[in-house]
Design a protein around this nucleic acid. Structure first.
Length: 847
RNA sequence: GGGCGCAUAGCUCAGGGGUAGAGCACUCGCCUUACAAGCGAGAGGUCCCUGGUUCGAAACCAGGUGCGCCCACCA
């Protein structure tokens, strides 16, 4: 395959997919293999259809994830990033990127990704950095970016702020403790799971309508262990039903408490440092937050202030999405994006159908999130990422620079030390990769992108952010063309053979390259294509991959057979009337399959279209058509053999084209061998069948298949080897539709002509034909009788059921005519079956 | 606490108001000149439970049970 073909041509409508950029420091995992299989299949089909296809590759700098990886590497050398300093550390990350980024590209080549290598981008390359800078400034100018002191999610291990979605909540066992603040008349009992934060309490809050505490509101109580006196305030946020109905208020360490403090003008007292160590003066100073909790409780118990304990108490606790450390809500000065207007636009684009989510059920989740989103904290206290382009002057000046602008310099000027959330730059990916903020030809040609293929697990992280930022940046376009993509195809997660999540701790991880080595890239891709049902997870295993490999092999052998027998692709198919019935039949089937596969592609039903192709290729084309074709090819009619060679070539050509999007390598190799063409990549996609369906041929071959299967079953039951030649006479065939197929039937059943001494020992009746066999030995009459009686019972039941059904007045009155007709046919067939079976039973020799 | 999804063969999953399907696994027989990574023939399901709608429900509806996922500032 020629990589040059991966670059879009000059004509045809544009079809664009941007890669969900993998993390530079990672390697492609099995989930990427699924994702790339889907994307590449879409791209390849469109390319074959004549679109100007662009599959734009690239990588993400993945701020916190990458920084953690490189820090771990440094730790092996006994170093921390602080030992290197910011500049040296960032250099180090770039070195790391250079080595691992290349590995990813190599993996993509092995998978057969037909990406345009000339357009590869990286979120930290010069152009994209300029896009980030431009976007920041634009939002800043529009008042959509602001800096504020807020409670944010803080990871005490990564030492950075996190956005809400970077926090994972899990239920944990804790302890709900009720603590008495104040004494006697002037006391109130609060309930908390985080006793240690009481050191930073600046109030107690109760519900304004709670009669129990009306008396206390406005008074002060003494905060134990500190000697401070704090007010009791009334705030509607408090739920009177929960705990004691009184809440301790710690504005510096709890988001709700912070809100309460703002409503009541309460001070915030920070009691922990950035590592979660208590800084409040006193006996607890220097303790880690998790050591401080029992210590504080012990001290309170000693004073008799713990009045009730509930343990275990299950409650949700936030963890850093990157390292799993328990998140600490922390008051700090951060940059935020005001999301309300952006999120509204992002929701509307889906609501009004400019962007379609697939599967559509995912929209509910999307709206839930987009319609009720907190402002997005975008500053990160990291070194790896896009540095915030804001400078602070010695007299409190704040300057947000423009790209290319000389930053203010001189005594006392300093750049903000934070970098942006990695999802800020990936949120621009749909247009920054095409040259934005410049008005480039690529941007004009390929934006909006056609489809976004990604996992539902990053619907919020990425898809929603792309929507917000793209619609904002492209607001100059027509609304319909401002969207980053027309359709979002959400695939599931890859799971193991038992449907379990793939994870290192489970030890069920799969290296896609290892599978490619063992089964081949086509087999790996086919495995994923076959499993990819929209929106649902994909269970894969080596057995599936092996099955797909077998399929590739089958295809290879079928092609070899065809080529060995002189198959060629005709300029034009011979007229239907001149073709053999098997030829007409398989062309009819190909027509259906072509239409079906094409339609399934439009619905992103990769699992189904793969299944359709698999069964057509294996069960119909290989198992029946090729076997029937052998009869013609080796038969006496040269003209017929020639026409079959044309059909063989035509079929193989079409099948290879249809399979190419999901099995690029084998199909290309076989196709070029068959046709001498440059590449199947640019062969026309067969969307419409060339031949109308041929019901007569399908019916005839259907009868042939049933007859052959019946006789084979008899032979199998009788222990007659399939390879063993058996003399037989086909009587009654003259009057049937199978009359013309006697040679084929004999070949498929390995029946030989009868001699003078022909003495049939058994017979099988089906499709109006009686096949009398000389089994050259005794027939196991008992086995045959059992088989026939069993079949008879099945047929009798069928007759019974259908008769009852047809006798039901409700059915005959209300069922559609077609259903009634089918039922009558079924009855007739079952009755004929019974007759045939009884004849065979009667014909059995005694014994 | 809120929302969503799933329940079909041993396993993983399609399907869908009118005869229960696939792959793998399993059983039996075959090296039949494209292919043993193959060929032929089989066995194997109260379609989770209970009601309802219907001439007819595995499918549609309601409730139940059991799983799974997402969101979440009741300390």
């Amino acid at each position: 395959m020629e990589a040059g073909l991966f670059t879009p041509g000059d004509s045809g409508p544009a079809y664009t997919i941007v890669i969900p950029p993998p993390n530079v420091t990672g390697s492609l995992h099995i989930g990427h293999a699924l994702e790339h299989t889907v994307i590449d299949a879409l791209i390849r089909r469109r390319r074959m259809q004549g679109y100007r296809t662009l599959w734009l590759p690239g990588m993400d700098h993945a701020g916190i994830a990458t920084q953690n990886v490189v820090e771990r590497e440094l730790a092996k050398e006994g170093l921390s990033r602080h030992d290197l300093g910011r500049e040296k550390f960032v250099e180090r990350v770039w070195e790391w990127k250079a080595s691992s980024g290349g590995a990813i590209l190599g993996q993509m080549r092995r998978l057969g990704d037909s990406v345009d290598w000339t357009r590869e981008r990286f979120t930290m390359d010069e152009g994209l950095s300029r896009a980030v800078h431009t976007m920041f400034r634009k939002l800043y100018d529009d008042g959509l970016i602001y800096r504020a002191e807020r409670i944010i999610n803080w990871c005490p291990r990564c030492l950075t702020a996190l956005s809400d979605i970077e926090v994972d909540h899990t239920d944990e066992e804790g302890e709900l403790v009720s603590i008495r603040y104040g004494d006697g008349e002037d006391s109130i009992v609060v309930a908390t799971t985080r006793a240690e934060t009481m050191l930073g309490d600046t109030a107690v809050a109760v519900h304004p309508d709670d009669p129990r505490y009306a008396r206390m509101t406005g008074r002060e109580v003494e905060l134990p262990l500190t000697g401070r006196r704090i007010p009791v305030v009334a705030d509607p946020h408090v739920d009177p039903e929960f705990g004691t109905g009184a809440v301790k208020v710690t504005p510096a360490h709890d988001p709700n408490d912070f809100e309460i403090s703002r409503r009541h003008g309460l001070p915030a007292i920070a009691i922990m440092d950035e590592r979660g160590v208590i800084t409040a003066p006193g006996p607890f100073q220097g303790l880690d937050r998790f050591e401080a909790r029992p210590a504080v409780l012990a001290a309170l118990r000693e004073q008799g202030r713990v009045v009730a304990e509930r343990r275990p108490y299950l409650h949700a606790v936030g963890h850093c999405g990157r390292c799993g450390t328990t998140v600490e809500p922390r008051l700090s000065l951060q940059w935020f994006v005001k999301v309300a207007p952006l999120a509204k636009a992002a929701g509307d684009a889906v609501r009004d159908g400019r962007v379609r989510l697939h599967p559509a059920e995912m929209a509910a989740r999307y709206f839930d999130w987009v319609d009720d989103m907190h402002d997005w904290c975008i500053s990160r206290q990291l070194w790896w990422g896009h540095r915030i382009p804001v400078f602070y002057g010695p007299d409190g000046e704040v300057v947000c620079t423009q790209p290319g602008e000389e930053p203010p310099s001189g005594e006392g000027w300093q750049q903000d030390s934070d970098v942006l959330d990695t999802w800020f730059s990936s949120g621009l990916w749909a247009f920054s990769t095409l040259g934005w903020p410049d008005d480039t030809p690529d941007l004009r040609d390929f934006y909006p992108t056609s489809v976004l293929v990604t996992g539902y697990d990053i619907l919020f992280f990425w898809v929603a952010r792309m929507m917000m930022l793209s619609l904002y940046a492209m607001s100059g376009q027509e609304p319909a063309d401002a969207v980053p993509f027309r359709t979002v195809v959400l695939h599931g997660l890859v799971r193991d053979a038992r449907g379990k999540k793939i994870s290192k701790s489970r030890g069920n991880t799969v290296d896609p390259l290892d599978w490619i080595d063992r089964f081949g890239a086509d087999a790996v891709r086919f495995t994923f294509a076959r499993g990819a049902n929209p929106g649902s997870d994909v269970a894969v295993s080596e057995e599936w991959a092996a099955g797909a490999r077998n399929f590739c092999n089958k295809l290879w052998n079928a092609a070899r057979f065809s080529l060995m027998n002189g198959a060629y692709v005709p300029d034009e198919l011979p007229a239907a009337a001149s073709l053999s019935v098997p030829d007409r039949w398989i062309l009819s089937r190909l027509a259906s399959v072509t239409a079906e596969v094409d339609a399934l592609f439009e619905e992103y039903e990769f699992g189904k279209l793969s299944e359709v192709l698999y069964h057509f290729a294996w069960d119909e084309y290989c198992d029946w058509y090729l076997e029937l074709a052998k009869v013609t090819l080796t038969g006496p009619d040269e003209g017929a053999a020639g026409r079959t060679r044309a059909v063989l070539g035509y079929l193989l050509d079409r099948l290879l084209r249809l399979l190419h999007p999901v099995m690029p390598f084998v199909t290309d190799e076989l196709w070029t061998a068959l046709t001498g063409g440059a590449s199947v990549m640019v062969a026309a996609w067969p969307s419409a069948p060339d031949r109308a369906s041929d019901p007569a041929a399908e019916a005839e071959i259907g009868a042939l298949v049933r007859l052959v299967t019946q006789v084979r079953r008899f032979r199998s039951d009788q222990g007659l080897h399939p390879g063993q030649r058996v003399a037989a006479r086909l009587s009654g065939i003259e009057g049937t539709a199978l009359a013309a197929h006697e040679a084929s039937i004999r070949a498929l059943l390995r029946l030989t002509a009868v001699s003078e001494a022909f003495a049939p020992t058994a017979s099988v009746q089906a499709e109006g034909v009686t096949v009398e066999l000389d089994t050259a030995g005794a027939v196991d009459v008992g086995a045959e009788r059992r088989r026939l009686e069993k079949d008879l019972a099945v047929a009798a039941e069928e007759v019974d059921r259908t008769r009852r059904k047809l006798a039901n007045p409700g059915f005959t009155a209300k069922a559609p005519a077609a259903v009634i007709g089918k039922t009558q046919q079924r009855l007739a067939a079952a009755e004929a079956e019974i007759e045939a079976l009884q004849a065979r039973l009667a014909g059995l020799p005694p014994g």
